[in-house]
């Protein structure tokens, strides 16, 4: 039983990280239906900004995170302007290829400038405290990541449901042309979406840095992929869905490693994912609207 609870803690912490990345993914997707494969790499850029902010300017972790979020928000807007906007009216797959291009570009320009070797995130930035309760070990960073994911999700949900910007976002997502006719600036709305999405990725990046102590230029690929899977799992474009998808993904991987065979972790995780999709093709939270003829 103790082991099970420990695995639950492990799974929720890992899931929180996936959820954090998935939030930004799903948000961008929800508005412009673009699978932004560069999202994981924006996370990597955020992690590096956080890293340099701590090591070069000696800021604390919160300032580093804010700086990374600010930097990536601007960065995300630029990426959208340069690489995605010209393709807004083309096929979605063309935009997908551009996203792959942007992803490769970010990875290799970082390697070119900083080298491919990992950088060690200063552990002094976030002192670790261990809590051992009845044989279960919980670290303050687990709690930190978990709470951040939940809080950010709530804020995001609030923005989208209750603010004017959020309404504009939903309008653009629902029908871009109608939104224009209603006097909504689509360009501005999409820019804001990218700003928020990229800022979330940056926050996730800094957290991954804190959590795992190392960052490297290719760190975004695998978590990015898994977060994308999590977003699809929850029903892509749905904010709480991304959150739940992230946690499901984290728990799934943990349970496979913990009670099954760790060698087949990724295979089983993907297998379960496919099963869920087959039973519920639009994801856990997706509404099956049916197609109009």
């Amino acid at each position: 039983m103790i082991e099970f609870i420990q695995q639950l803690v492990n799974g929720l912490s890992l899931g929180a990280i996936y959820a954090l990345i998935a939030l930004g993914y799903t948000m961008v997707y929800g508005i412009i239906k673009l699978i932004n494969f560069a999202h994981g790499d924006v996370m990597m850029v955020g992690a590096y900004v956080g890293f340099f902010s701590i090591t070069l300017f000696g800021t604390n972790i919160l300032a580093a995170m804010l700086l990374a979020m600010l930097f990536c928000a601007i960065f995300g807007v630029i990426i959208e302007k340069v690489a995605y906007r010209p393709l807004r009216n083309s096929t979605r797959i063309a935009a997908l290829i551009t996203a792959i291009g942007v992803s490769l570009f970010l990875e290799y320009i970082t390697i070119f400038i900083l080298g491919p070797a990992q950088k060690v995130f200063p552990s002094s930035a976030f002192p670790i405290t261990e809590y051992h309760i009845a044989g279960i070990s919980i670290l303050n960073k687990n709690i930190f990541v978990f709470i951040s994911a939940v809080v950010l999700m709530l804020i995001l949900q609030y923005i989208i449901k209750w603010t004017k910007t959020g309404k504009a976002m939903r309008a653009v997502s629902l029908d871009m042309e109608a939104a224009v006719l209603m006097g909504i600036s689509v360009d501005k709305t999409i820019s804001i979406t990218f700003a928020i999405g990229s800022a979330l990725a940056a926050a996730a990046g800094v957290m991954v840095g804190v959590y795992y102590n190392t960052i490297n230029p290719l760190m975004g690929i695998i978590p990015g992929l898994k977060a994308f899977v999590a977003a699809v799992l929850g029903g892509i474009g749905i904010i709480p869905g991304a959150m739940v998808g992230g946690f499901v993904m984290g728990l799934l991987e943990t349970m496979v490693s913990g009670y099954g065979n760790s060698l087949y972790r990724d295979a089983v995780a993907f297998g379960v994912l496919i099963l869920i999709l087959l039973i519920k093709p639009t994801g856990l939270f997706g509404k099956n609207t049916g197609e109009k003829v």
Binding site: Q7, N10, G11, E253, T254, S257, G258, S262
Partner: peptide
Amino acid sequence: KDDRDFNATLTK
């Protein structure tokens, strides 16, 4: 390779 979270298996 590139795994960063080992808690599940370590717990086992």
